[in-house]
Design a protein around this nucleic acid. Structure first.
Length: 470
RNA sequence: GCUCCCUUCGUCUAGUGGUUAGGACGCUGGCCUCUCACGCCGGUAACAGGGGUUCGAGUCCCCUAGGGAGUACCA
């Protein structure tokens, strides 16, 4: 039997990290077993489903590289099929029409709560033979006794008592089918062998198994993955910052970093932290998924992102960095080769946004000196070194990293100063702050004209300061 | 309320009856060094609580507490 898994989001928002991880686990399981991964859009809630959401979900999956083998299938296009199944259930007496009013249902619920009992439908219409001509819903006739055992791939065996369950609505008054029916029919029709989904569905599973049994079908295997919480342990939501997968792209994360982070959230393979997609496929094991919910930790994601930025081909990083530079109003074509800029910053940035910010100086003059850096390095003592450097740089005909390196060393030596006494003021003069790549690369990337211009500005700053002091 | 699920450092986790409870992120001390970062070496910090079972329990059982999910003509 070939493994077939699926991801079945309802298009009522973007693809969030919890959904992405569920999709990832499902996808990995299919890939690992040489199976198929199906995408199904659960859009039976006509009120809340939107095409924008569908597109956002598709976009997120594409970015992460979670390609599906079949679909997307839309439930709204399968209403005839659901009707057919519902009619079959009705014919066999496994479902019935119900015209209980909302008022009656509300009252029932209220009373059950008052009696400290679980609210459940009392089966009022079970044998009333409600006419098909009047408005009605259709309920599934759930077994009244016995138990349903769910042998969950992650949770182990979970037992539910049928007495706890009630006759759920499978078709609304307007004729549309509901979730618990459509999911069962679809998983059956799409021959899904392993249902890997969020654990908010664990409670639905016994109902779905009962419907499956009514349909004379064998239930698939289930695996309920725990949810993801925010840094503070509360359910992940907008107030935790980025929850949408696409927000992570905007924030300068690499898809492989997010994937690596997500796969390690709730799953592990010994002490290994870094997983390529191929390794994930090879090593992933649904049994090893944790039962407990886990908290999202952006610091660790950042660490992984830095790891992948360091490791990646500078050309690819440059390609991804370009739009981030654009967001800063910089056209990378107007200045040094972006690939060289990337190579200079690859070990320093945790995200592409950071990289864009820290390398902006290569393309544009800064407005003001960093206050602390200027105070410390742009003082009287730096005046001579800067003047000497300016002179040397102005006379340099071959603007290469090697020559620049030699030059800084020569000037330091001739002034009998440590290299830092020259490099630091120079760095602040040229980038506006105290941190940048090696001084030679920094000068090289900034370019001759900008270097001279900015050194002049720094010298003016020092003179101004001396004037104020004196 | 009721049903179901969960509980090892701050966070992600290893651990399947005998470990100085390991790794990673973070934080932190040091080395490297023209700064920052990288890298390297070190430190910090956990078995929710209580009962059992056992020669021995983070590991098995029960209870309590604390989290979470469901309890819709949402999915």
């Amino acid at each position: 039997m070939t493994v077939r898994t699926r991801f079945a989001p309802s298009p009522t928002g973007y693809l969030h990290v919890g959904g992405a991880r569920t999709a990832l686990f499902s996808w990995l399981y299919a890939r690992k077993h040489g199976g198929k991964f199906v995408l199904r859009i659960e859009d039976t809630d006509l009120e809340r489903s939107t095409v924008e959401s569908v597109n956002a979900i598709l976009e997120g999956m594409t970015w992460l590289g979670l390609e599906y083998d079949e679909g997307p299938f839309y439930q709204t296009k399968r209403f005839d099929r659901y009707d057919e199944v519902i009619q079959g259930l009705l014919d066999k007496g496994l479902a019935y029409r119900c015209n209980c009013s909302h008022e009656r249902l509300d009252k029932l619920r209220e009373e059950a709560m008052k009696r400290k009992r679980k609210p459940r439908y009392d089966g009022h219409c079970r044998h009333r033979g409600v006419s098909p001509d009047e408005p009605h819903v259709i309920r599934f006739r759930n077994p009244e006794t016995g138990v349903v055992a769910v042998d969950d791939l992650i949770r182990g065996r979970v037992i539910f008592n049928n007495e706890e369950l009630d006759d759920l609505i499978i078709r609304r008054t307007d004729g549309s089918p509901t979730y618990n029916l459509t999911v069962v029919v679809d998983d059956l029709d799409m021959a899904i062998t392993h249902v890997i989904r969020g654990d908010d569905h664990l409670n639905n599973t016994p109902r779905q198994i009962n419907i499956l049994r009514a349909l004379d079908a064998n239930p698939p295997q289930y695996g309920h993955v725990p949810m993801i919480l925010g840094d503070d342990g509360a359910r992940l939501s907008k107030r935790h910052g980025a929850v949408s997968v696409m927000q992570y792209r905007e924030a300068g994360f690499l898809p492989e970093a997010l994937l690596n982070y997500l796969v390690r959230l709730g799953w592990s393979h010994g002490d290994q932290e870094i997983f390529s997609v191929d390794e994930m496929i090879e090593l992933f094991d649904i049994d090893a998924v944790n039962k407990a919910a886990s908290s999202f930790n952006t610091d660790k994601l950042l660490w992984l992102n830095q790891h992948y930025i360091k490791q990646d081909d500078p050309k690819r990083i440059a390609h991804l960095l370009s739009p981030q530079m654009g967001n800063l109003g910089i056209d990378p074509a107007q200045g040094p080769d972006l690939v060289a800029v990337v190579e200079a910053h690859q070990e320093r940035a945790r995200s592409l946004v950071e990289m864009a910010e820290m390398s902006a100086f290569c393309y544009q003059d800064f407005e003001t000196f960093d206050e602390k850096a200027a105070k410390k390095h742009l003082r009287a003592a730096a005046r001579e070194p800067l003047e000497r450097m300016r002179e040397a740089l102005a006379g340099l005909d071959e603007w290469t990293q090697e020559r620049l390196h030699d030059l800084v060393e020569q000037v330091s030596a001739s002034l009998e100063l440590k290299m830092g006494k020259v490099a630091q003021p120079l760095r602040v003069a040229v980038v506006g702050r105290a941190a940048s790549p090696g001084i030679d690369v920094t000068l090289y990337l900034v370019g001759k004209q900008a270097c001279l211009r900015r050194i002049d500005k720094a010298l003016a700053y020092i003179r101004q300061r001396e004037a104020n002091a004196g």
